[in-house]
Simulated assay, not measured.
Amino acid sequence: MNKRTLTIIAVILALLLVGSLIWGVTTQSKLEADYSQKSEEAEQLTLLRDKLMQSVDSLDQAFTEVSNENAELQGQLTEAQETAKRALYDMRQAQRSRKNDNTVAYQMRVQIEDLINVRTMLETSIAELEEENQDLRERNVALSRDLSTAKTEAYNANKKADNLTRMNRSMEADLERMTLGAFRASAMQVDLLRKNGSNTANASRARRIVVSFDLTDVPREYLGVRPIYLVLTDESATPVISENPVRAKSIVNGAEKDIIALEGRDVNIERNQRLTFTHELDDKLAEGFYRAEIYTDVGMLGSAKVQLR
């Protein structure tokens, strides 16, 4: 490289150095001015930063307080909302309950009115039933008396029927045992008469006893005059005794038997005939069953029963 070139290069470098120095000074001045400005701005910014930091701290504290208060308020709000929901639910329930209560009250009023009407009907029915019951009690008392009387009468009737049955059996046995075979009374009839001669079954009105019977196909050995006796016995087989009783004897079952007759007479016994005894009673007869018996000296001819009431 030549000197000229070096000079040029040196000049250029010198110019560049001078320019650099000038730029550097200018730049430094600007930088210093900018630095001063920036320093002031930095200080202001620092002050602003400090204020902002204080504000941030205050805001952070306030935020924290607000957050806490907000959380508390949020809890209170939630609780208030729940309380409001419960109050609304209770109000709706109360409204429905009130509607239901009104319905129930109406139904109860209707039922009470029905019950009052039923009670009135029942009271009326009870009063009527009490009257009917009183009438039934009175009728029951009367029926009980009638039933007692009927039972007594039935008992007496059964007793009399039993006595009559026993009497009939006794009569039949007596007839079989005591009669003389073909020599016996048949178609025997017993009538009790009043004073005027009419028939009666009333013990207090009976004044006369009429006993009639047939003798038919009498065996030859019994024909002729024989004594015939009328005996009247009660249901216990006790003879009814008149003021002038007739005492006699008869042969019964091959043995002699004492009899007490109301009356007796000698009769000419024929082969066929109807005989009648009429006897005036000396005393009134008691109620009950009686048996009229016909005897002869050789045995009993027959008997028949009669009842007085």
Rank of each mutant, 00 (worst) to 15 (best):
N2V: 07
K3W: 05
R4E: 15
T5R: 08
L6E: 11
T7P: 03
I9L: 11
A14L: 14
L16F: 12
L21V: 13
L21S: 05
G24T: 12
T26M: 07
T27M: 03
K30I: 03
A33Q: 15
Y35T: 00
Q37T: 00
E41G: 07
A42M: 08
L48D: 05
R49H: 04
R49V: 02
K51A: 10
S58K: 13
T64C: 01
E65A: 14
S67W: 09
N70G: 00
L73G: 02
R86D: 01
R86N: 08
L88M: 03
M91T: 15
R92P: 11
Q93R: 12
S97Q: 13
T103M: 09
V104N: 10
Q111P: 06
I116L: 02
V118S: 04
S125F: 03
L129H: 06
E132A: 05
L136V: 15
L136N: 04
R137N: 03
R139F: 03
A142F: 09
S144Q: 13
T149Y: 03
A150I: 11
A154R: 13
Y155F: 10
A157I: 10
K159V: 12
K160S: 08
K160T: 15
D162C: 01
N163S: 11
R166A: 11
M167W: 01
R169N: 00
E172A: 04
L180P: 10
G181C: 07
F183D: 12
A185W: 06
Q189K: 13
L193D: 04
N196M: 04
G197A: 09
G197T: 10
S204M: 02
R205M: 06
R207A: 14
F213A: 09
D217N: 08
D217A: 13
V218W: 01
P219H: 02
P219C: 01
R220E: 09
R220Q: 09
E221Y: 01
Y229V: 00
V231L: 03
T233H: 09
D234N: 14
S236R: 00
T238Q: 10
S250H: 12
A261N: 06
A261H: 04
R265G: 10
D266W: 11
D266E: 14
N268Q: 09
N272A: 14
N272S: 10
R274V: 15
T278K: 09
K284P: 11
E287K: 02
G288M: 06
G288V: 01
Y290V: 00
A292Y: 04
E293L: 00
Y295F: 15
T296H: 03
V298P: 03
G302L: 09
S303N: 08
S303G: 05
R309H: 00
